[in-house]
């Protein structure tokens, strides 16, 4: 792996918390990893497990879901649903011997620009140590 290796990470960001948090990170000029390709969703509860699986199989090195802290959901309970879905995905990945560390869910509120930068950078570092997602080269998915 060369030093230049830059993982590609797909992030599904809740409109009300994480996406605004990302904005704040930008406004406050925090350094955020350029690996993250953010996709805005209206709620973390909108992250269908299929999105995560598809991003992973299509070769994303990591997939991040981000939503409001428990109790803060704009739609009251979407993030609780999201939490169950990620628990489920992790269980499926574990059972099938896939790398469950490549996917994850983080709570990032609108005021947590710093936390947004921190978790994104940490996750990027982790993906750097892991190297590219082997599915990126897989012809027969």
């Amino acid at each position: 792996m060369s030093d230049a290796y830059n993982p590609r990470i797909v992030g599904f960001l809740c409109n009300w918390c994480a996406y605004t948090g990302a904005d704040l990170a930008g406004v406050s000029r925090a350094r955020v990893s350029s690996s993250l390709h953010a996709i805005r969703v209206m709620c973390s509860g909108r992250i269908d497990p299929l999105y995560v699986i598809m991003a992973y199989l299509k070769g994303a090195d990591g997939v991040m879901g981000m939503g409001c802290h428990p109790g803060d959901c704009h739609y009251l309970k979407g993030n609780y649903n999201a939490r169950r879905r990620f628990v489920m995905l992790e269980s499926i990945f574990k059972t099938l011997g896939l790398d469950g560390k490549r996917i994850g869910l983080w709570w990032v509120s609108a005021s947590e620009g710093k936390r947004f930068a921190q978790v994104t950078n940490e996750f990027t570092e982790l993906m750097k140590t892991k190297g590219p997602n082997p599915f990126r080269e897989e012809m027969f998915i």
Partner: peptide, 30 residues
Amino acid sequence: SIESEPESKGGIRVPSGTLFFHLGRMAHMA
């Protein structure tokens, strides 16, 4: 995706998404 994907892989399976179907269905009903 026909444009971008096969470049790095050398080719793609068609119809594509075999694994996606099974893993996706799994996520929905297993």
